[in-house]
Simulated scan of single mutants.
Amino acid sequence: MSVKFQQETVQQVVNQAPESLRAETKELVHNIGERLTGGSTANGYLTLYLRQLQSNPMRTKMVTSGVLSGLQEFLASWIAHDVGKHGHYFSSRIPKMMLYGTFISAPLGHLLIGILQKLFAGRTSLKAKVLQILFSNLIISPIQNVVYLSCMAVIAGARTFHQVRATIRAGFMPVMKVSWITSPLALAFAQKFLPEHAWVPFFNIIGFIIGTYVNTHTKKKRLEALRKHYDQRRGPGGEY
Rank of each mutant, 00 (worst) to 15 (best):
F202Y: 13
A190S: 12
Q117A: 06
V154I: 13
S40H: 13
T25F: 15
E224W: 03
M173Q: 04
M152V: 09
H217R: 13
R35F: 09
S91H: 14
I79T: 07
G122W: 07
P184C: 03
M98V: 09
V146N: 03
L48P: 00
H110W: 11
L21M: 12
L68W: 04
A225S: 06
T9H: 12
W199F: 12
K221C: 05
R51L: 06
S92I: 06
I94W: 07
H81K: 15
F161K: 11
Y213E: 01
A42K: 12
E34P: 05
E34L: 09
M58T: 11
M98I: 07
A42R: 12
V175C: 08
I155D: 05
A128M: 03
K221Q: 13
Q52S: 12
P174A: 03
A170D: 10
W199N: 06
P201N: 02
A121F: 10
N31L: 15
E73W: 01
E24L: 13
H88C: 13
K127M: 08
E8Q: 15
F193T: 03
A190R: 02
T216V: 04
L111F: 15
H86M: 06
Q232G: 08
K127I: 15
L194M: 04
F5R: 14
I115R: 09
M152C: 08
G101F: 02
Q7C: 07
G33C: 07
K85G: 07
E73L: 02
L112Y: 03
K221R: 12
I104R: 03
H197F: 11
